[in-house]
Amino acid sequence: MTRLTTTADPADLRAPAATRRRRADGARDGFGAAFVLMLPAIALYALFSLTPILLTIWISFTNSGGFNTEANFVGFDNYLRATEDPIIWPSLGRTFLWLFYHVVLAGGLGLALALAIGRLSRTRVFFRTAFFLPHLVSLAVVGVIWANIYDPFYGLINTALTQWGLAGWAKGWLSDPLLVLFSVNVASSWQGFGLYMLLFIAGLQNIDGTLYEAAEIDGANALQKLWNVTLPGLSEVMTFVLSLAMINGLKGFATVFVMTNGGPFYASEIITTYIYRLAFQAQDHGLAAVLCILMSVLAITITVAFNRWRARKSS
């Protein structure tokens, strides 16, 4: 098993003598060769990802009403409207809350189960496979399944609670404004934790077994081994999972869209669902575009800040 390495190419840091020749070598064919190899990726990415993003920036300065409609340049009008919109800022807050829930629920469950399964030998593959199954379900279907589980009158949860004599615990999982975002996030995290779990399992396999032996010789108990060997050994995976979970969390859309459509009364509205409804239902494409840009800026800020933090941590 190869050891985990940091982001930077290890060869960049080491190999001082040989590099000079390679550098010269690289300089000769560097950009040209790289460009040719990257060309398909650049072309597709530019056409189907960057162009729409650029068009979005243009739309944000117009009063576009959607496909085929006449759009006039309105300057920063949409941006001004965004500052006054009563829905945007609370839903931005909820987007962060959603992100936090996803990292804690999906990331946490993934880690916990990886630690539990990592110790098994005969049943490991079984549990690993079984626990990954929810990740194979599409988010739209997850929404349909969980909406039924949460049904206040006929759902799995409330029916079970009532039958066990815990009727007082039965809740309006999707109607209580304080619960709804959490409830939907549980459904989304049920689908999402499997990948994180596999990554953590993989990380555990990469921890050097002799470290445990050394700890055992020092008389460490299970908890101390977890704290002093396992968790530090997983730090690399953890940052990876964290960044992946943040990106997935920020993109959260399908489960909210299917299960609550942002309701009741905006209680589960996050930026993406609001963008969708602004564009498709209200036909307010200008404001929707402003929100897209806001989201992109947010995503970039988080990614860059996270990478900086990660680089500082590992150096």
Partner: peptide
């Protein structure tokens, strides 16, 4: 392959990871 702007090219690609498709569906 070593070339000028490698890091930035990579970041430009990674940028796409953060954009949900719903947000750009109309221009797309």
């Amino acid at each position: 392959i070593r070339f000028a702007g490698r890091e930035w090219t990579f970041y430009a690609f990674i940028f796409g990871l953060t954009i949900p498709i719903q947000a750009i569906i109309i221009p797309l």
